[in-house]
Design a binder for these strands. Structure first.
Lengths: 127, 127
DNA sequence: CTCATTGCAAAGATTTTGCATCACC
DNA sequence: GGTGATGCAAAATCTTTGCAATGAG
């Protein structure tokens, strides 16, 4: 890991994410942080999101919709994606480490983990 | 579903995928099909892959590496991704429909399915 | 003073699309 | 012959990167 010098922009991005449970995209982070730093560039946002993820301060999510999302909760947990509105919410459900053992018995190699998300329709869209 | 007119190019793409278990990317399909249709365009490959997926003849995979991959096996099944060489192989392991029920009890909405893949190091790379 | 960070813009990478032409039914 | 498909190139999307200027330690 490289030496890191503090920056107001990165602090702001980190602080913004800490308070969220909606897993913002880089674009959403950009729009939000822009209110405090009107001249920040999208490149800087992407760079800092990558640095924070690299340092294990946040987690990068890919729920198969093109844009990556970012989560301040770095604990292993599952997500629920609404197929109608695209909202991504946390699932407070136990991590299934045992499925890695199961998968390992079928794989032509050593299984060390898995990636998963659940999809369906959220309550709000079901109305 | 729209009316479809047959084309040699699409037939070739379909036939190429049928014989594979390595989940080629669009680029790989393009390179392969180009041997029979040297003037085929990448756009046509993308277009046909999307049409075939739309018709349920093939399945589009996203294993979080940027490029999508395509699978002639449209049955629900899991995949194993080697983190070293990037190879994607099938896992002949039962589909865990019960986890959808479990997730549903935790979700703020109706869970209808899940997406998952396992990762690790394949035998070839472990040597 | 050094070098990580920024803003800007250009470039990358992947996929989609507009359009005139082609070919299937 | 009508319209779906093709090839080509341009564009759209999302993300990364080169570079000179700026700022933190």
């Amino acid at each position: 890991m490289v030496k890191r010098k503090r920056s107001k922009q990165r602090d702001c991005i980190r602080a913004y994410l800490e308070g969220r449970k909606d897993h913002p995209t880089a674009e959403m982070v950009y729009e939000a942080v822009r209110e405090e730093f009107p001249s920040i560039s999208l490149g800087t946002v992407y760079r800092n999101l990558s640095l924070l993820a690299e340092d294990g301060e946040i987690m990068r999510l890919d729920v198969g919709e093109g844009q990556d999302r970012f989560d301040p909760n770095v604990e292993k947990h599952y997500h629920f994606v609404c197929q109608k509105c695209g909202a991504v919410s946390d699932l407070d459900m136990p991590w299934m480490k045992h499925v890695d053992v199961l998968a390992d018995s079928f794989a032509a190699g050593k299984v060390t983990g898995h990636m998963a998300y659940f999809y369906g329709i959220c309550d709000k869209c079901a109305e």
